[in-house]
């Protein structure tokens, strides 16, 4: 075989590939939709953080503000102290990386479509993207936050004045925790930590339990994208519901109490 020839570099300069793509389907649909949802979520979340109000009603606490960290020396919204954790977890998430590299950075926007800007691509080898490698640390922290959210959901079953109640809002909070757990524990980094780093699952020591955990995480991980979206929506909706309860625009809809 001959050595690789030097290829013409400018886009469209190859007669075999004259256009940015030959795809005829709506390849731009997916990145456009994802970009729209991301922007909407970011706007809503930013608004809620700086609103610094309507996040707690009785025993219902918004997930954006949990755990509630109130200090004398901190004059801003307590959400800022906590929200960088889930934000960092999602930003470094292997699924979201794909989604935003495609829809925001357009490297590439879709498969078989020319990327935006051909020069200077360094992937995840240089600042800032090299920090994606710290995803697992965000996992540790996100798992910690998740404990508080489960705690909040349980607390919401108790009336502040004593006794218990079951409300639609509590069910929403539990559902949110369920989706967040599915997302958090299906994380690629966790899959690696719990067993993926092993080369041998059975005949080697100490591996069998980790293999079982890994198998379970793998099942979650196969649908990581689904969990990622469901939990993103559930967390926003839970917060919105609690906000509406706080403003009086909605009520928790108590099903029964004693």
């Amino acid at each position: 075989m001959t050595e690789a020839q030097t290829e013409p570099k400018a886009p469209g300069s190859r007669p075999s590939h004259p256009d940015i793509t030959q795809r005829k389907d709506a390849w731009w649909g997916e990145p456009a939709t994802i970009a729209t949802i991301f922007i909407a979520f970011i706007i809503y979340a930013t608004f809620r953080v700086f609103e610094n109000n309507y996040f707690e009603s009785g025993n219902f606490l918004s997930p954006f503000y949990s755990p509630k960290l109130v200090f004398d020396w901190w004059k801003f919204s307590p959400a800022i102290l906590i929200l960088w954790i889930p934000a960092g977890f999602r930003t470094t998430c292997y699924y979201y990386r794909k989604a935003y590299y495609r829809s925001f950075f357009m490297t590439p926007p879709a498969c078989g479509v020319d990327p935006y800007g051909k020069d200077g691509y360094t992937g995840e080898t240089k600042f800032p993207f090299v920090f994606q490698n710290l995803h697992r640390y965000f996992f540790y922290l996100a798992a910690l936050v998740l404990i508080f959210l489960w705690y909040d959901a349980v607390v919401s079953l108790f009336k502040p004045e004593g006794g218990m109640q079951l409300s639609i809002l509590s069910i929403v909070m539990f559902a949110n925790c369920f989706f967040l757990s599915g997302y958090t524990f299906g994380c690629h980094a966790y899959r690696h930590l719990c067993g993926g780093s092993l080369d041998c699952f059975s005949s080697c020591t100490k591996a069998k339990t980790r293999f079982k955990v890994w198998e379970f995480v793998t099942k979650l991980n196969e649908h990581h994208m689904g969990w990622a979206w469901c939990s993103l929506f559930s967390v926003a909706l839970t917060d919105l519901y609690i906000r509406q309860v706080c403003t009086g625009a909605a009520n928790p809809i108590i099903l029964f109490q004693f």
Partner: peptide
């Protein structure tokens, strides 16, 4: 240079053997 991969998953999409290349 595994770091160049930005896990945009097109490899997994086109694989005729349906290998989950990225994941």
């Amino acid at each position: 240079h595994i770091g160049y991969c930005n896990i945009t998953k097109c490899c997994s999409e086109v694989c005729p053997e349906e290998i989950h290349i990225t994941d």
